[in-house]
Design a protein around this nucleic acid. Structure first.
Lengths: 223, 223
DNA sequence: AGGTCTTTGTGAACGCGGGCACAAAGTCGC
DNA sequence: GCGACTTTGTGCCCGCGTTCACAAAGACCT
């Protein structure tokens, strides 16, 4: 009753989070002309352990060949399909401050299955200007132009993030990447991932502070 | 023998990763004039469960008062000390492309314990130019100017990331925040955290694809 | 064609993290 | 000053994820 249509093989969240890494590593190998790779080599390239890699791949009914390894092109395609990257996803960036501006100009999305198609802001001074070949529009305009499934990237100041999220969700957005340093609450069925730059630095700071005193005996068993 | 000087109370990694969230939530409460908060309220503000929050705080020998809650200012200070945020940390941003440029101009660091002090690039066309009030320098110059403990933010293209990391480490950097979409290998004692924007989007894409078919019966028990 | 050797796929053990529920502790009212 | 009430701190349990180690499977050599 609860896990009704568990027809699709269930893929662990931790595995899903690593699939993009594998895909990246595979693309790199492919560009270097490698066409077969062992779990050991691929794990090395992706920065994980080989046993974990094999288990991850086994979840998507992988087609490795024992004694040989994995076919790079084949595996690459397999993972792409699993992640839903056969076709590009349309992305709207909301909030055209420093960060939004940079994200709009950032080339790293296009090659990885995403196409930034709309830039949204509510500041009249910014609306209408052109950034990276796109005109900045307001929410009303986005509502008119965006009938499809889109992914929203939130790059607003924290105080505006919740409202921006609400508006996006009202347009049918179900996936949000939140760069605003705040908690946003969303209804069930909407997926939010957050990227908080300052938080990452603070975690580093913790280890940096700790490390100064303790690394000498932890990092090296003897000395 | 292994865990030699576990004199300091050991704080779980998962807890460390949440401390910045608590700090942020506390700052928000403080600015609103709240000076005592219960674990329930703070958990709500930080987007976690209250039981988990209490357990996290217990690790740093917290000073909550039963029947009342936590003193906002006190707790805030406690977490700041734990994270090593009494003084600001000096940050060098390496790679002045779109992303590096935006990070340099991003105001979100200064208020959270970090001071961006050096902007580094190896392109002669960029070196010497001024961004967000700082002059872009090369690695040699950074080596001359940076005697202290610094945190490096890598915002280079992927092919340049490893070399940039190596150079930074040679200068004594032990903490790296890597925005380049690639794996970098570092010696023991150097901490790397990575932020990969395209990867985050790909994870969202996976759920988006899955969600279209399956959410209807998973999200809602009945219908 | 058979044997050896490589590499996958996976069963089992383990450790961490999250959640529940309760007892301890301290406050506030009377 | 005492009792009731609130909220913390934590012991226990469970489920997930990671790692190890090995058996199955297939390729390659002779």
């Amino acid at each position: 009753m609860s896990t009704a249509s568990a027809a699709r093989r269930e893929i662990p969240e931790a595995t899903v989070a690593r699939l993009p890494l594998y895909l990246r590593a595979l693309a790199s190998l492919e560009s270097r002309g490698v066409d077969v790779v062992s779990s050991e080599e691929l794990a090395e390239a992706a920065g994980v352990r080989s046993a974990g890699l094999r288990k991850d791949l086994s979840h998507l009914g992988s087609y490795g060949v024992r004694g040989v390894g994995y076919d790079v092109a084949r595996l690459s395609e397999e993972i792409s399909r699993e992640l839903g990257l056969q076709h590009d996803w349309a992305v709207a960036i909301i909030g055209m401050g420093n960060l939004g501006h940079a994200l709009a100009a950032y080339g790293g999305f296009a090659t990885r299955g995403f196409s930034v198609r709309w830039l949204v802001d509510e500041d009249p001074a910014i609306i209408g200007t052109e950034i990276a070949g796109l005109r900045v529009i307001d929410f009303a305009e986005l509502a008119r132009q965006a009938p499809e499934t889109i992914i929203a990237v939130l790059a607003t100041p924290p105080h505006a993030a919740q409202q921006a999220a609400d508006r996006a969700i009202a347009l049918g957005v179900r996936s949000i990447l939140n760069f605003a340093p705040c908690v946003i609450t969303v209804p069930d069925g909407v997926e939010v991932r957050k990227v908080d730059l300052a938080t990452e630095l603070q975690i580093l700071a913790f280890h940096e502070q700790r490390g100064r005193d303790e690394f000498d005996d932890v990092a090296e068993g003897r000395r």
